[in-house]
């Protein structure tokens, strides 16, 4: 992005209205950032509070109410579902992303160098964008293929993405033709040209796409909600949903806590417990975001400008 599209000279002759607007604009931006961060801050602080104090506190938790307490995190990590969920999610994210990159890179390479069928292929991929089968026929196809209630479905759904193919193709097209020709003269076939030469040179774009795919898998609960049944296959988000939305589930988790609680106190622990669970589920993204966010933005820019 260009840093400043307007000439600097206009700073010298700003009218009073423009200065007022500028001040207002800056205040508005700060307010928007505040609104964006406030709920997250509340959740983080709530999860670190002493649960019973948080229950009595009400309102927004600006600071850990009643002092720092990691009890709720201990409880969350003692919950066997969290480990199952984490392992499943990591497995789905890793294998889904690898498969997706493998298939999409090959498709992008074909579309970028091989001319004869390009238009036919692209039309073939465009049609489902405008007219798809919808939820029920898709579900039935999956069912008839025997894919529901299996781990495969979590990896396969959404693995080929037109958007990713176009972004990759744009990047691949930027490489000089001579590079590929010379490799072919040396005896490499297209498959090895792609994986030994093209992909290593376009690592930045590949990494961005992988990043988006990982986040997508991490946050995906809907596929599992529709197609999976067994608890041992469920990703983390499904357990999170139960904990946040089903009262009984949260109560059960609180009652399983190691420190002694009386029945009437159970309610007081639920909120802090839910906050802690949500933070644990978001943790990788919250931690990675500050370091990776510029890649995310870059990814969208590539797609938006070229796609």
């Amino acid at each position: 992005m260009k840093k400043d599209t307007k000439p600097k000279a206009h700073w010298l002759r700003r009218s009073r209205g423009e200065i007022a607007f500028s001040v207002f604009n800056h205040i508005l931006m700060v307010a928007l950032c505040f609104i964006t961060l406030l709920p997250m801050w509340h959740v983080i602080m709530g999860s670190l509070s002493v649960p019973t104090k948080l229950f009595l506190h009400g309102g927004i938790a600006w600071y850990p109410v009643g002092g720092f307490s990691f009890d709720m995190y201990k409880t969350v990590f003692q919950n066997p579902d969290v480990l199952t969920g984490y392992l499943n999610t990591i497995f789905y994210a890793a294998s889904g992303t690898l498969l997706s990159l493998f298939v999409n890179a090959m498709a992008a390479y074909t579309l970028c160098k091989h001319r004869m069928w390009n238009n036919a292929f692209i039309t073939f991929m465009m049609i489902p964008m405008f007219f798809g089968g919808g939820l029920i026929p898709t579900y039935l196809v999956m069912k008839n293929l025997g894919l529901i209630y299996t781990r495969t479905i979590m990896i396969i759904t959404g693995c080929v993405s037109m958007y990713n193919i176009i972004v990759l193709r744009t990047t691949f097209s930027g490489l000089p033709d001579g590079l590929i020709e010379s490799a072919k003269i040396d005896g490499a076939n297209d498959f090895w040209v792609l994986w030994r030469i093209v992909v290593p040179l376009c690592m930045a774009t590949v990494a961005v796409i992988a990043l988006f795919s990982i986040v997508g898998h991490w946050n995906n609960w809907y596929t599992a909600y529709i197609y999976l049944k067994d608890d041992e296959m469920m990703p983390l988000q499904i357990f999170l949903r139960r904990m946040l939305m089903e009262e009984g589930e949260a109560e059960k988790a609180v009652n399983n806590m190691n420190f002694d609680t009386r029945i009437f106190e159970t309610m007081q622990y639920i909120e802090a417990m839910q906050y802690a669970f949500a933070i644990v589920a978001m943790l990788p993204i919250l931690v990675a975001y500050p370091f990776l966010q510029r890649y995310f933005v870059k990814g969208v820019m590539v797609g938006a400008i070229k796609g």
């Binding site: 090959m106 292929f121 089968g133 196809v141």
Partner: peptide
């Protein structure tokens, strides 16, 4: 190399359209 993509689209996009 393009075959997996075609297979994916036929199975997960075109079969549901037929399934309508």
């Amino acid at each position: 190399m393009f075959l997996p993509t075609i297979a994916y689209y036929i199975i997960f996009s075109y079969m549901p359209i037929y399934g309508i």
